[in-house]
Design a protein around this nucleic acid. Structure first.
Lengths: 229, 229
DNA sequence: CAGGCAATAATTGTATACAATATTTAATGA
DNA sequence: TCATTAAATATTGTATACAATTATTGCCTG
């Protein structure tokens, strides 16, 4: 957290990390604009490096850059939302199976600590942080599977999922999924690939089914725009 | 093709497209260095926009940027090579199935024209161009399936496949796969999703099995480095 | 007072200048 | 002659200045 006026001399990776966290934790909401010199003031670097960071984030799908207009937190359409979870359904179950065959005791520890932190964040009343940690859990499984390429894609998909959840989540209260993650770790511990694959498949369907992905907002993005004509 | 000394005023997208083609057609080989002011001379723009293009290509995996050293055409390791085809095996068969259910007459025309061009390139003695077109064929199927997200990932995977082929291709002569593509189009025409899925799976295995992915170069990249100590 | 139009301001896009780092070349000594 | 070191050169990293574009404001007109 930058204190008063300007923090100084941060690297591009640091900017990327902080903006990513902010979006994942829904402190920056879909549609929010990121002005270049505003960001460069906050981080105490020139626009050059800020632009680098913004473009990297745009490539991941977290931001959308409109020429001569600026960078905005992406607002995935309903179609994109579906596509994200279809892609996850293709990649993650198989990856969970592969992970089960390679899981070490250290991996189990790490994953359980992850779940622990997730619970603590929820108890502390930080649902945004919990959501971010939940996403990291999925990435961790790809790491355990030793699939860097898939992990990289998954990173993008998890990012976009966070945006989808911000836009289309049905009930804000739901504490959901913590069970699913626990069950997954159990399957990994037992090196039960089939169970891990099935659990992951079910878990993704669970999240997917808790989204409100009906047709209603294609084109009407904000109140302002909705009233414009 | 820039003629003599300097072409002028090209956009970043144009640079990305031309460099991508050059790598896909193996005119730029893995390990080749791309100096920034060299590229900016060729395209007649400042380093600013060249750097944008290089970073975008690095994000796709086509280039690797080493800090303070520059941008090089990527040289995927054996592990990466395996990962690329594992990821393709997860994404492409299902996508081919989805495509079969949505294929239109126009799509068929386009795909057949694609195969035609591929043959012509081979006959004309341009195997690099044929390879590039072959990659585009796979992307086209994702487009037919109306899966933009998967298409985007596949674009990266096809790019990396091109690098893998440049590095690990067994016999240079092989005219291979044209049959496989034809069979796939037939399945799409009949809306036979199961056949399309199976054909794609087999096709990918075919390519994969024609690679020479044994352990021999992990770590020893060049003769020079091998002898250095 | 609404709607359009022009002038102004704000913001992004591009080029260039300078700083930091890496690579090459030259020089020195054993 | 070879290795080591130092200077010179070349290349990338960052900041800043300027150009192009977009957004905003105020004004004029109907």
């Amino acid at each position: 957290m930058p204190s008063t006026t300007k923090a100084k001399s941060t690297s591009a990776e640091e900017i990327i990390a902080q903006l990513t966290d902010a979006v994942h934790e829904h402190r920056l909401k879909p549609g929010a604009k990121l002005r270049e010199d505003e960001v460069s003031d906050v981080f105490g670097v020139s626009r050059t490096v800020v632009r680098q960071a913004l473009r990297a984030l745009a490539f991941e799908g977290l931001l959308t850059i409109e020429k001569n207009r600026g960078a905005f937190v992406s607002k995935p359409s309903l179609k994109e939302a579906h596509e994200v979870f279809q892609a996850r359904a293709l990649l993650e179950p198989s990856t969970a199976r592969a992970a089960a065959e390679r899981t070490t005791a250290g991996d189990i520890d790490l994953l359980e600590r992850h779940i622990q932190e997730e619970h603590e964040a929820l108890d502390r009343g930080q649902p945004g942080l919990a959501l971010k940690l939940s996403g990291d859990f999925h990435l961790e499984i790809a790491r355990v599977a030793d699939q860097r390429t898939i992990e990289q894609f998954l990173k993008q998909l998890v990012s976009r999922s966070s945006l989808v959840i911000a836009l289309y989540w049905r009930r804000r209260n739901a504490l959901c999924e913590s069970n699913a993650h626990h069950a997954l770790v159990d399957a990994l511990r037992k090196h039960d690939g089939t169970a891990a694959e099935d659990l992951m498949k079910g878990h993704l369907l669970d999240i997917y089914s808790q989204l409100d992905l009906r047709e209603f907002e294609e084109g009407t993005t904000s109140l302002k725009e909705a009233l414009r004509k």
